[in-house]
Write a protein that binds this DNA or RNA. Structure first.
Lengths: 151, 151
DNA sequence: CATAATATGTAGCTTTGGCTACATCATTTT
DNA sequence: AAAATGATGTAGCCAAAGCTACATATTATG
């Protein structure tokens, strides 16, 4: 290393440890993103169709059924879902709770995007990726902001 | 399949194809997220230190140097960076352009989060994950919103 | 200059989440 | 009832991004 980089611009270049933590957090959020998507979708399908079948899940997510089944296996391993052979997928209480949190977070993100002027289609589209990275603190701020806007 | 689910709640349950596209888009955004992080960081290091060494990059990202080197190899393969043995990493014009776009997007996201009331620390933390999923259309909306707020 | 410390690179392993191809089970149609 | 269709499951492949462990090169230090 040549220079120790004693922070020429402290506001913009955060300390190494701090920055590393940010990336670490983003990575771990990403690791659960897929699980969250599956759980929310399964919950939707259970509510609307009364059942959530691997093939339907796969079609909705835009992946092959083989991929869906593999991820469902992971859901079961993590205690979020159960499935009976040829009888579809179900959520455990933990899975259901997660689905609820994910869904309300998704709505809040979409609402906020709309409130700051993002077109509806775009808001839905972007929210799908954004939602997994919004912390509870930010969510609370979103809720306050929305209440202030339209009380 | 039991029921065709003729959209009991059209506003909430989008068509299969539409929904699949959303997930597909989020997945592809995620695929480039790591590259974007590396490129932005390398650009920062080049600006502040005059060089970007694998070990520094690794420390900043919170990964081992082996991981960093492997991803740098991918950057080179994708035409975003170059590197000379033991001489650090450099960005191609494409890499530099990407870094600029990523940085301005990052700032805009942080500013928006701040503007809707998210605490500063939290805004920085969340932006790291969010930024990769914000479309140009949404970014434009953010910019308009911010201009309206503080003209 | 020789040695220690640090940086860099390579090899090989793991998990995740994609995929295709093939096999089996269930349901619907003829 | 038999056959076709569609759903489900299994096996094996791939790439990405992490890791540890080891090897080598460079730089600093005694």
């Amino acid at each position: 290393m040549v220079k120790k980089a004693v922070l020429a611009t402290p506001a913009e270049l955060p300390g190494e440890a701090v920055q590393a933590e940010r990336f670490e957090k983003a990575r771990s959020a990403q690791a659960t993103a897929v699980l969250e998507d599956y759980v929310e979708l399964i919950d939707d399908l259970l509510a609307s169709d009364g059942e959530a079948r691997p093939t339907d899940i796969a079609r909705r997510l835009g992946v092959t059924h083989a991929t869906a089944i593999k991820t469902i296996t992971r859901l079961k391993r993590e205690g979020l879902a159960t499935s009976k052979l040829y009888r579809g997928v179900f959520l455990t209480p933990e899975g259901h709770g997660l689905a609820d949190r994910v869904r309300s977070r998704h709505r809040l993100v979409v609402d906020l995007l709309r409130a700051v002027g993002v077109p509806e289609d775009c808001a839905e589209l972007d929210a799908e990726g954004i939602e997994h990275h919004v912390s509870d603190v930010a969510l609370a701020a979103f809720a306050r902001f929305l209440k202030r806007q339209s009380p």
